[in-house]
Write a protein that binds this DNA or RNA. Sequence first.
DNA 1: GATGCATGTAAGTGCTCACTTGCATCTTAT
DNA 2: ATAAGATGCAAGTGAGCACTTACATGCATC
Lengths: 202, 202
Amino acid sequence: MGAGQGTTERILDAASELFAQRGYAATTTRAIAESAGVNEVTLFRRFENKRGVLAALGERFSAQMAGRAVAAAPDSETVRETLLRLARMEIAGTLQNGGLAIRLAFDAKSVPEVAALLGEGIPSNLEGLADYMAEQQGRGELRSDIDPRVLAEAFFGLTSSYVMYRMVMGIGDLPEDVATDEGIEQLFDVFWSGAALGGDGR
Amino acid sequence: MGAGQGTTERILDAASELFAQRGYAATTTRAIAESAGVNEVTLFRRFENKRGVLAALGERFSAQMAGRAVAAAPDSETVRETLLRLARMEIAGTLQNGGLAIRLAFDAKSVPEVAALLGEGIPSNLEGLADYMAEQQGRGELRSDIDPRVLAEAFFGLTSSYVMYRMVMGIGDLPEDVATDEGIEQLFDVFWSGAALGGDGR
DNA sequence: GATGCATGTAAGTGCTCACTTGCATCTTAT
DNA sequence: ATAAGATGCAAGTGAGCACTTACATGCATC
């Protein structure tokens, strides 16, 4: 095949799946190549080295993530709707690449190149959401007796552990359609009822 | 030193810390030995192999866990108190061994021996808590419009991601005293206000 | 049908890792 | 003092891994 295009994609797909399943360090280049149905040498002709595969994956990843900011909330939406939508996006995005982000977040502590790739992604996401929470507290939409960072942590804690349980630890069923799944709304609702003003008489 | 006793403990302590930080596969026996201030050969004289260290760690671990059931709640406690106490115990226990359990839960998918060690630990914990939640729903202590398993998942999701952020990903400050820490109570309170009956008019 | 390009095959290099072996040293109990 | 047991040290073995090199094959285009 002269289809040099598809080869790169197949390698990245295989790498994404294997990294997510086993982590970066435990995934061999041989396994990636085999899983992509490609010779190992081809992998090294396409990418400078194993780290290069990870880097390319990172670019593809952040391209997908591009539209995922809280900021882009239409005015017509209630805060509850915005956060539920964000939760579904968060879960869908993380599920889509097989829990890759969560897995890599774990690897980051032991694998320097992973840390470099992930960079400030997660902390800054957390901070961004905390800012949003604080803003909504100011507007009286969220209870103010709780640190906004705690609210943000609770939010991401629920979404990330939702994916973690299912993709990494194999606990619980995968949702058929993230956009409409009942269980996700229930889980979100526990958070929301706890975070909204008026929920607890505060 | 003829103190053969302390040596084993020091090796296990070092292994626990390193496994938690880097994961099982990424931790070398050399690093364990060095961190324990012991020759690598000594490690292999004390334990049959690397897996043996993990197994010994597992026994010590489940010994510590022994008293950590929800069931042991005194009658004088409210449900809120019981769950908060459980949350603090959960967090303290997981922090104490440096996020080891969470880290190993991740490794389990790629490292068969880790999976064998962890066994059914986490799923059964989840189920046990779900049973408790269902019971409290029956007594009118918790809102009934949410699947008890979702409540259990939300609970463990918050406690485990609390530890995950701090120990594994290095985000946020470590609590000085888990038993009294304010942040933990706030985080729990988000869950509680969302889970309790009457919190949301349901 | 010749040229170029992507891929496959086979073999190998150098490194790190789990784990071993042989011997010296130190501590403790007798 | 001596014997026994725990530890250290130096060196090595075999396996797996990332990555390389040299060469052959197939598919397009001109």
